[in-house]
Amino acid sequence: MNNYNFAFFDEGSKREIRRATLKAIALPGYQVPFASREMPIARGWGTGGLQLTLSLVGKNDRLKVIDQGSDESVNAVSIKKLVIGTTGIDETDKTGEATLIQSRHRIPEAELREDQILVLQVPIPEPLREIEPSEYATKRLHADKEYSGVWLMLFEQIMAHGSVATGADHPVLVHDRYVMAPSPIPRFDNPKLDHSQALILLGAGREKKIYAVPPYTKVVSLAFEDYPFEVERMAERQCRLCGAAGVYFDELFDEKTNEKYYQCNDVSYCLQTRISLS
């Protein structure tokens, strides 16, 4: 890939993306429009995150990429290959060693630090999109802090199902101001956004938005007093490989015994636990 600049983009493009990123950090939870570029990987496959990563990466960075918890998932590998190929920087699977972590739909189990940046890939950045298809209208709803639609949505779920029925992407309120779509991470990861030590950047390439949760920002998952926020129930489960509990699990099926079993979704966490046990 010698015909390309360091980190793929021309420097002007990188600077432009970093400007939008700075604005996003200054306005926690606010979706900053940016001139999203076409990338060598497909729109919808993590191009928002990739553009953030490429605009930020420097020669001394160490990169980790995960897709739904796995460092070795094909798309994570493909993104990693592109960044490494155009920068020549080091990669790592270990969460603690990475300076820059790009992730699809998970926040790692190991707690992140101040000297790390987490980049999340976002398919639909607008938390109000389900209620209001028009971008023109949702932009105004945010400006007016008019969030009754999203409260009503949660209320209607309780009326219909007896509980809030959001899956991943349960909406959060950032810094008491903007309602934000958390990318979609599972509800299990929502509490990790709150007062995170690491800077969390969210990028939506196709929808051309960048937004951020700066370090130590208050992030609250939307819920009612009598129907508190609930994460996916992982409590009675245990990892078959490392014995961990209280983490997010993949649900697997043993063809021979016809039994369901569980395994840490965060593969790197699972490996680290096994190493420290042995």
């Binding site: 897709d67 739904q68 739909h105 899956g167 991943a168 979609p184 509800r187 699990f249 993949d250 649900e251």
Partner: peptide, 10 residues
């Protein structure tokens, strides 16, 4: 792409 985590949540 795999949707294992999000589908598990659903």
């Amino acid at each position: 792409l795999p949707h294992y985590v999000t589908f598990q949540s659903n």
